[in-house]
């Protein structure tokens, strides 16, 4: 029995989540705030793709979110869309102080649906909610769009860190719930008892990369930067 408990603690969830949206809406800063609790009023523009892994605790389970931060400029879409493969979650970010970034949400959704699984858990994020005086997109508008598209919705501010981890956690939790439901379905289907959860199987939700590879890719990235 002890063996099983140890095995269960070793159980490893790895969710791949992508951050997408127009240039300079604050994707990198959302990630910096979430993963390192840092904020840079002028961070360098992201060229290509960067990623970071962050541990999240959901219902006592340690979940690793591998968050991919992408370049926002139109011409990088072909580069970045290659990295959507295997993503189970997405944060679709716009800047509440710039309407054009909200207007292009539709194009980003198309992009996401073309290059990834239709079931990817998506949250619409209106960032820079601290810029109250410069607001161009109202909260209601964001909500309406999110409801129409069946997305979660949240307004965040990487600057004062309001709602940042809530946004990430919403996505991760929903993925986890879907996964748990699937597990239950599988269990019912196979008429198996609850030992399924205890047999120590590693569940990797990312297709290509396993956990070990992930830690190594991360190291490779560190050396290169």
């Amino acid at each position: 029995m002890t063996f099983y408990i140890n095995e269960e603690q070793m159980e490893d969830y790895l969710f791949k989540i992508v951050l997408i949206g127009d240039s300079a809406v604050g994707k990198s800063n959302l990630l910096a705030r979430f993963a390192r609790d840092e904020f840079y009023s002028n961070s360098k523009s992201t060229i290509g793709v960067e990623f970071q892994t962050q541990k999240i605790d959901i219902e006592g389970k340690e979940i690793k979110a591998q968050i991919w931060d992408t370049a926002g400029q139109e011409r990088f879409r072909a580069v970045t869309s290659a990295y959507y493969r295997g993503a189970v979650g997405a944060l679709l970010v716009y800047d509440i102080s710039r309407r054009q970034t909200f207007d292009s949400i539709g194009r980003w959704l198309n992009e996401l649906h073309t290059h990834s699984d239709m079931n990817v858990v998506t949250i619409l994020v209106g960032n820079k909610s601290d810029l109250k005086d410069a607001r161009e997109v109202s909260t209601a508008e964001g909500k309406v769009l999110a409801e129409a598209q069946g997305l979660f919705f949240m307004e965040t501010s990487a600057l004062d860190s309001s709602n940042v981890s809530a946004a990430f956690q919403t996505v991760v939790k929903e993925i986890y719930n879907i996964l748990s439901r699937k597990v239950i379905l599988v269990q019912e289907h196979k008429k198996q008892d609850t030992s399924w959860m205890e047999n120590g199987k590693t569940i990797v939700l990312q297709g290509e990369t396993n956990h070990e590879a992930d830690s190594r890719t991360w190291r490779a990235k560190c050396c290169s930067s």
Partner: peptide, 16 residues
Amino acid sequence: DMEFDVSLVATEWFLC
């Protein structure tokens, strides 16, 4: 083996 695409790091190197 790791299914690591070099473009992940090299895009930025070549463009900047």
